[in-house]
Nucleic acid binder design. Structure first.
Ligand SMILES: [Mn+2]
Ligand SMILES: [Mn+2]
Ligand SMILES: [Mn+2]
Ligand SMILES: [Mn+2]
Lengths: 157, 157
DNA sequence: CCGAAAGCATAGCCATTGCTATGAATTTCC
DNA sequence: GGAAATTCATAGCAATGGCTATGCTTTCGG
């Protein structure tokens, strides 16, 4: 059986322990399952803040996907208790939705500003942050935040 | 119609232009479609380097998914021309597979070391890098690389 | 050399995320 | 006030990524 111990310890053990390895992949898969929800509620919140309302059409235009794709996702968000839908009047966030949106937007902001602060261009920071944000854990986020506060941040606030 | 111009310019225009916004989301969706392939070929390459061979069973154990999940994915990788499968003898990378693996591993290493260099713990860096890596574009990667080379890197090499 | 164990393949299921095509409801504007 | 345009809903399809259950092959230990 030999439960513990490496199989073939060669030159440099470039590979970490299997149980440790699997932990990273599991966490990444978990993050992937919540990415879209985070982007939606954050976008809805932004649209409301920016223009007073969030319409399905606006979401469609900003995400760059087809309208039924958004419609289906919104149904899921209603089911999960993040939004309320009033036909032809817009999308509204529930308390849970507002909380998730606030958390997501804050994390997004920090990640993007961190990228700017470390020297990434505005465009690349904007694009990369949209994907990176969902995989930044609490500890990393606080490190990023401290870095941004310590060094100058890219542009605003 | 009014094709150009903001709808309601309120206090701070927290929202970027729609076409600009959609670009980020599109890129993120594109990245998501290649994440798994990158992780697989990188892992296969690591397993071969570490133990001389990459077996389906090893991949199963390291990814933490069920065996048929890996079997299906490997079939896809064969189809896409990244690997070759010899039953009961292991998985082998094609030239395309080796190239993708090398690129992915290098990017992964840089991202993880960058996180360490900026002050993230070993465990958090390991976990977060597994997800972040796939969303780091060329420019951001070179910035990270320069940072690691300038400042001390977390641990090895 | 042969039976058990390990490794792998396959079938069939489900959830998610995207699409097109189409139709219904609501607003808007003349 | 009604026709046209917008907005939204729904049906149906496909690809991806996961699962369990099951059975076939190959390898290995005795
Ligand atoms: Mn975001
Ligand atoms: Mn995002
Ligand atoms: Mn990787
Ligand atoms: Mn990864």
């Amino acid at each position: 059986m030999m439960a513990s111990g490496k199989g073939k310890p060669s030159g440099k053990p470039s590979l970490v322990d299997a149980d440790t390895h699997v932990e990273s992949f599991r966490q990444t898969r978990t993050n992937r399952r919540t990415e879209l929800v985070e982007d939606y509620v954050e976008l809805i919140d932004d649209l409301i803040l920016d223009g007073g309302e969030a319409r399905q059409v606006d979401i469609v235009q900003r995400l760059g996907v087809a309208q039924p794709t958004v419609a289906k996702m919104l149904k899921r968000l209603v089911n999960d208790g993040f939004i309320q839908q009033k036909r032809y009047r817009g999308i509204f966030l529930t308390e849970a939705g507002k909380a998730l949106a606030a958390k997501s937007r804050e994390r997004h902001r920090i990640v993007e500003r961190f990228l700017r602060a470390v020297g990434v261009s505005e465009e690349a920071a904007r694009i990369d942050a949209e994907g990176i944000e969902h995989h930044v854990g609490d500890e990393t986020l606080s490190v990023f935040k401290a870095f941004v506060e310590r060094n100058g941040r890219g542009d605003n606030t």
